[in-house]
């Protein structure tokens, strides 16, 4: 019973993914058709490749969607085993990462990296605060030294620290 429910959920997730991809490809194809097929001198225009790719991609996605809706889910490497919190977890990880990138430009590379590392480690390696703090500080320092110092990347300076 649980397995059947998981399969239905997996097929529904796959159909949603393929549906979203069909929408993106439809939008891409529509834009492709706004570009010229050929130039005034009868050479290939900028629209040839996007139109061809869009039409072919859309057709393939629709075939795959039809197959999924007909109960023939392709089930990728995680298909059956994916837990039902998969999507919220992805959203949470993406959210944490976006915060890191934003802090990168506000606090500077060193502090942002340290905070991001500390935050992530407190979730995936809980209870070892001292070790996590040492790793976070070390990671931020070493990478900053490597990229900013040796490779001359010049990361944006932060509000509180110049690096």
């Amino acid at each position: 019973m649980t397995s059947a429910r998981t399969n239905v959920a997996s097929a529904r997730a796959e159909a949603t993914f393929l549906g979203a991809m069909a929408l993106v490809l439809a939008w891409y194809t529509w834009h492709g058709f706004q570009l010229a097929w050929s130039t005034p001198s009868s050479a290939i225009g900028p629209g040839l490749f996007p139109r061809s790719i869009g039409v072919a991609g859309l057709a393939m996605t629709l075939v795959l969607l039809a197959r999924t809706l007909a109960g023939r889910a392709t089930s990728g490497e995680d298909g059956a085993g994916a837990n039902r919190h998969w999507l919220p977890l992805v959203a949470a990880l993406v959210g944490v990462y976006v915060c890191f990138v934003m802090l990168f430009f506000v606090l500077g590379a060193f502090l942002a990296t340290g905070l991001f590392s500390m935050g992530l480690l407190s979730v995936i390696n809980p209870g070892r605060h001292l070790l996590n703090a040492v790793q976070s500080a070390g990671l931020a320092g070493i990478l900053l030294l490597l990229f900013d110092g040796l490779l001359g990347t010049n990361f944006p300076s932060g509000m509180f620290l110049p690096f």
Binding site: Q135, L143, T153, F155
Partner: peptide, 16 residues
């Protein structure tokens, strides 16, 4: 648990 953060940060630094 010790590799995840360095890889993500290294990837970000490398990309930037």
């Amino acid at each position: 648990r010790y590799l995840a953060t360095p890889i993500i940060v290294l990837a970000t630094y490398g990309t930037y």
